[in-house]
């Protein structure tokens, strides 16, 4: 908790979670997936959530992302307590405020890379000129201008994950949650993806919170939060290698 207090409070608070807990009843034995966690994230942070398997990383991301509800505690996203939102309003809230990147890319296979990125903006009801501009900008940032019309099956894993990151950013969310984004990538692709995420973090001021096992990813995070048995055991601002270069 001491680490939380060290974060300068001049910036806008994006995520503010208080005392959140989530218990699963695994065969009638309660499992505390997330146990009384406090988390405070400011705009523009690039934070890694680390910990062994079963430590509660994904559950915490699901709770912060509004995919799951905590058994206790409050989660404020940009000042809105998402634990009080109905499931219908939560879907809308996620669409407008949160970008998701998943471990296994999860692009829609029948759509081209461009259409996958546009998809989220279509859900938001944005017009075609806005969509076109944003698609061009994002594909420039992820350096895939020449792959706009490729289907996911025609792209490598790394390229697919870059498109997934572009999709997460297309809606101009308040922050991006990424669950083990590099887990299915080789080291070069993982490094490229990290470069792009850091670039977007710098250029767009986008807040990233991602879970990872990968030490190379952890090394490049500016802040590392370690979870063990559903509790935050450390929260350290790590110096990103890339950032210091």
């Amino acid at each position: 908790m001491a680490a939380l207090e060290k974060i300068p409070d001049k910036k806008e608070t994006v995520i503010d979670a208080h005392n959140i807990s989530k218990v699963y009843n695994a065969d009638t034995v309660p499992v505390h997936a997330v146990n009384n966690v406090h988390l405070h994230l400011l705009k523009g942070e690039f934070t890694a959530l680390v910990g062994p398997s079963g430590s509660g990383k994904t559950t915490l991301l699901n709770l912060i992302g509004g995919l799951d509800k905590p058994d206790s505690g409050q989660i404020y996203i940009n000042g809105v307590d998402i634990t009080r939102l109905s499931s219908g309003r939560l879907i809308d809230f996620r669409l407008q405020n949160i970008g998701f990147v998943f471990q296994s890319f999860n692009l829609i296979p029948v759509l081209t890379a461009r259409e996958n990125v546009e998809f989220i903006m279509l859900l938001q009801g944005k017009g075609s000129s806005v969509r076109d501009r944003r698609v061009k900008q994002l594909f420039g940032q992820i350096q895939m201008e020449n792959k706009l019309d490729s289907r996911p099956a025609q792209l490598s894993g790394g390229q697919q994950q870059r498109v997934a990151v572009a999709r997460a950013l297309a809606s101009k969310p308040k922050f991006v949650l990424a669950d083990e984004p590099t887990a299915n990538l080789d080291s070069q692709s993982a490094s490229n993806l990290l470069d792009i995420m850091l670039k977007l973090n710098r250029e767009e001021g986008m807040t990233f919170l991602f879970s990872t096992h990968d030490q190379r990813v952890i090394d490049r995070a500016r802040r590392v939060i370690r979870l063990v048995d559903g509790r935050i055991v450390s929260d350290t601002a790590a110096v990103s290698t890339a950032h210091t270069q």
Partner: peptide, 16 residues
């Protein structure tokens, strides 16, 4: 099923 879960997660409404 996974893809549908993902679509709901990223903000596609259930009725859509």
């Amino acid at each position: 099923k996974y893809e549908m879960g993902m679509l709901l997660a990223i903000g596609m409404k259930k009725r859509r």
